[in-house]
Structure formats: structure tokens, C-alpha cells
Design a protein around this nucleic acid. Structure first.
Length: 190
DNA sequence: TCGAATATATAAC
DNA sequence: GTTATATATTCGA
């Protein structure tokens, strides 16, 4: 029981990987150019959960993930397995899912919305188990610089570049190396 | 349990 | 621009 499935999909320079549970819920996703690192990262994420019972069938979510990467499809109808996320991460995730396309928000605004601190929100966003499906790339610092984006657990300039490309494809207004103020979405709404 | 480490914010220089 | 400090949550010894 509790048998998980790992599915991979390759498009151009990137590998897209998803782990799903028997109810077809998304347990975790990750992507990057290094297939070995990707598999290692996902296996580590579910360590202790499935043991060696992970199967490797294809899954439509893997293709869906690549579509999301190229901004070709909405992420609706994907159910998430929240087994590994803390209550706090859950509250942050709920906000992330509301950030509209063409917009971003900040760690600080999310923090104020849920009565927490920006640094804690940064931790939660950084450990988002469902990148692309849950648009954690739509969160930037209060200075409006693009900021950081880790892929398969590694945090470097490359991730930041990918984050920028994702935002550009979604037509978030960017001037120079900063988000334009018109691109900010306020979680307090109106 | 506690100390250290964060994908931060803000104020002051 | 660069600090210093406050801050919430997580993780490991």
C-alpha cells in the first residue's frame, strides 16, 4: 500500500518529474536539466514513505508540467497530496494558488496576510513541493528584484534565470532586473 | 529543547 | 548602495 509512482518527461534541455499517489494526487514535482539529480531529489523527498515500492509508469501530470513551464496550459484539476507539508506551508500554499497570471506578490505581503513573518514565508515558499503547479515563482522580494529560485534543492544564479524566464513568458511586466510596480498583486485585494 | 539557518523587511547610514 | 536588527518557522545536535 501507499505505492507511489515516479513519472518523467523530457522536453528540450529540461527533465520534468512528478510523484503521484494511488489516488492520482500530486505528491511532489521537480524539474531541471540533470535527470540524475532530479530523480535523487524526488526520491529523497518521499523517503520513508514508499520504500522501494515506487513504480515508474508514465503520467499525464509530467507532460502537464512541461506545458506549465512553457505557459501553455492552466494547472486546474490537479489534486495535491499534502501529507508532507506543515500546516504553515499549507497556509502559504493557499495564497500562492491565488496569485494571478501576469502578476507577482512579495514574501512580506503574504506574511502580513497570514499574520506571520516574511522570513518564515520565504522558508515555506522555498520548500514548495509542487513547483509550476503551485506558482511559487510568482513571489519576489519587496525590493521587486526577481530574487531566488531553487531547483532540485540547489540554489544558484541559474534558478534565478529560470524564474525570470517563467515570469517573462507569463507576461509579468519587468523593467531591467526588477518587476514593475504594476505587476504586483496584493493578497489583501480590495 | 535550543541554536543556527533561512528564496525577508525595514530603517539607518 | 550597504549594514544592522527584528522576525517566524524549520531542522538538527
Amino acid at each position: 500500500m501507499n505505492k507511489l509512482n515516479l513519472a518523467l518527461h523530457h522536453v528540450k534541455e529540461n527533465w520534468f518529474g512528478v510523484i503521484t499517489d494511488p489516488q492520482n494526487q500530486l505528491v511532489a514535482s521537480a524539474f531541471g536539466p540533470n535527470k540524475v539529480l532530479l530523480e535523487k531529489y524526488l526520491a529523497e523527498y518521499v523517503r520513508g514513505n514508499s520504500r522501494q515500492q515506487t513504480s515508474r509508469d508514465g503520467h499525464p501530470f509530467a507532460e502537464c508540467m512541461a506545458e506549465l513551464f512553457y505557459d501553455r496550459k492552466p494547472s486546474s484539476s490537479v489534486k495535491f497530496n499534502t501529507e508532507h507539508v506543515s500546516p504553515f506551508q499549507g497556509r502559504v500554499t493557499k495564497i500562492l494558488r491565488f496569485i494571478p497570471k501576469r502578476k507577482v506578490t512579495t514574501y512580506g505581503l503574504i506574511a502580513r496576510k497570514i499574520g506571520s513573518g516574511p522570513r518564515a514565508v520565504g522558508n515555506a515558499v522555498a520548500s514548495n513541493p509542487w513547483p509550476l503547479f503551485v506558482p511559487c515563482h510568482r513571489v519576489v522580494s519587496s525590493t521587486l528584484s526577481i530574487g531566488n529560485y531553487s531547483m532540485c534543492g540547489t540554489l544558484d544564479e541559474r534558478g534565478s534565470l529560470i524564474k525570470r524566464q517563467l515570469l517573462e513568458r507569463e507576461e509579468v511586466p519587468i523593467k531591467g532586473d526588477k518587476i514593475s510596480p504594476t505587476g504586483i498583486w496584493d493578497p489583501f485585494g480590495e
